[in-house]
């Protein structure tokens, strides 16, 4: 089970919001790069996020570039999961490949700062602040297996190949 405080964002948070191209020179210095996580969407984010914080977003989270640094710095900042109404395809795949759960649900029912509990196996999010329970959509089996292994690299190391 994952637990944490909701950190809320609106629609269309792009990979340029998450980690702007102007910091591309820091991509081999992840600790420095992570200091700028989401700064163009919420300059206070890096200081607000606590270990176990949960990003709660609107539609099309993570649109834009293929930079895997985007979910990587989010994970490094201590975020344990991302909930969104919808997620851009490459970002979705990248996050799962890093073992960071991305779950699709109706995030309008969650307010900023709410305490959340996520039960991955049951497919359920409980907002313990307002008592709402939300279900999230199922992801393809292969993604679930990659997530369960903690990411793509550990998955391939274990199986040596893709298993359908």
């Amino acid at each position: 089970m994952l637990k944490g405080k909701a950190l809320k964002f609106g629609d269309n948070i792009s990979t340029d919001h998450i980690i702007p191209g102007r910091y591309a020179h820091l991509r081999s210095n992840l600790r420095e790069l992570a200091k700028h996580v989401l700064e163009d969407a919420d300059p206070t984010f890096a200081s607000r996020v606590k270990k176990g914080g949960i990003i709660v977003a609107g539609n099309n989270f993570g649109l834009g570039s293929s930079r895997e640094h985007a979910p990587l710095v989010i994970k490094m900042a201590g975020v344990s999961a991302i909930l969104a109404k919808s997620v851009a395809r490459i970002f979705f795949r990248n996050a799962i490949n890093l073992g960071l759960p991305v779950l699709i649900c109706d995030t309008d029912k969650i307010d900023d700062g709410d305490e959340l509990k996520i039960e991955l196996k049951k497919g359920m999010v409980k907002d313990t602040t307002n008592g709402n329970e939300l279900t999230f959509g199922k992801m393809p089996d292969i993604m679930l297996r990659i997530l369960n292994q903690g990411g793509l690299i550990p998955y391939i190391q274990k199986y040596g190949d893709f298993k359908l």
């Binding site: 795949r93 490949n97 793509l152 893709f162």
Partner: peptide, 20 residues
């Protein structure tokens, strides 16, 4: 199509990937 670094690294090594 575009993918991230982990996916591409695995294609570097295996020459294939999974697609929906």
């Amino acid at each position: 199509t575009g993918m991230g670094s982990s996916d591409v690294a695995v294609i570097f090594a295996l020459g294939k990937s999974w697609f929906r």
